[in-house]
């Protein structure tokens, strides 16, 4: 252990070789469920101000990556730094949109209330949200165009509205980096474009957005940065350079193009059980 790597009292800071100042940098990250790797030795740097998609087959560890980044899962090895610091020091700068079906929508609460939850942490113990917090939450609701639904019970929302509620809850935190777990899952086309517009608006304001995504056909349209993940990182970088047929085949175990099986080679015998929709890629 060389002394210059030891910046904080107990936290080892990993130097990265990227030629940008990454907002998110995963270094040799390994996450395992009971000694079964879900993510294997990933090195990933995300530059500021991009809209990034994490793409890969089912069980590739996409959601695991986000959860490990947010300390929701223990790491078997490696580190993740946000703005050069560990997560616990920069919580306020990171927003999180979990998968929509991770909560019980029959919970007795209103849309405004759910959005206000995004501010609970900044309030500290015992203090209750007041007028200021409500106003902030209303502003966030206006951003996702749900201001007319503020008083509504959350089970009365459509899937798309629920997703936008979660989005507003993250927006109200006014973070610099957002993690979103499948925000486009099971929403109608209209909602999808509305959500996309919000994400693009975030990008123009200089925020970074990391999105777990499953629809290969829209990747090129939606994102400007992409990470191809299948337990280990296949590639990451600008969409134009990374989102190529060869690398996609490699990610999906060579099963995307059925005319040319296994051209990605390697251990591709372990076939993907979720052939992606974009078979023509």
């Amino acid at each position: 252990m060389s002394p210059e790597t030891r910046r904080q009292s107990d936290i080892l800071i990993h130097e990265t070789a990227a030629d940008f100042d990454p907002v998110l940098s995963a270094n040799d990250l390994t996450v395992a469920y009971d000694a079964k790797p879900a993510i294997w030795d990933i090195d990933l740097q995300v530059p500021p101000g991009v809209l990034m998609g994490i793409v890969g087959p089912n069980g590739a560890g996409k959601s695991t990556f986000i959860k490990a980044a947010l300390n929701l899962l223990p790491r078997a090895g490696g580190s993740i730094l946000f703005f050069g610091k560990p997560y616990s020091q920069v919580r306020n700068r990171v927003g999180y949109v979990p998968q929509r079906d991770s909560v019980d929508w029959d919970f007795p609460t209103t849309v405004l209330d759910v959005v206000t939850m995004g501010l609970y942490h900044s309030l500290g113990w015992i203090r209750r949200p007041g007028r200021r917090e409500r106003d902030l939450a209303m502003t966030a609701l206006e951003q996702v165009k749900l201001q007319d639904f503020a008083g509504r019970q959350i089970s009365q929302l459509s899937g798309g509205q629920q997703q936008r509620t979660f989005l507003a809850r993250a927006l109200v935190q006014d973070a610099d980096l957002y993690f979103m777990d499948e925000p486009f899952a099971a929403v109608d086309a209209l909602t999808e474009s509305a959500i996309l517009a919000i994400l693009q608006e975030l990008r123009t304001r200089g925020k970074t957005v990391v999105v777990v995504h499953h629809d290969l056909q829209t990747v090129a349209d939606y994102f400007d940065w992409v990470a191809l993940l299948n337990v280990s990182l296949v590639a990451s970088g600008p969409v134009s350079e990374v989102f190529t047929d060869e690398l996609i085949e490699l990610t999906y175990g060579g099963r995307v193009n059925s005319l040319n099986p296994g051209s990605g080679g390697g251990v591709g015998a372990a076939s993907s059980d979720s052939a992606p929709h974009g078979a023509s890629l």
Binding site: L72, S102, V103, D104, F107
Partner: peptide, 8 residues
């Protein structure tokens, strides 16, 4: 309501 969000 949302333990994951709370933990994050």
């Amino acid at each position: 309501f949302d333990p994951d969000f709370a933990a994050a």
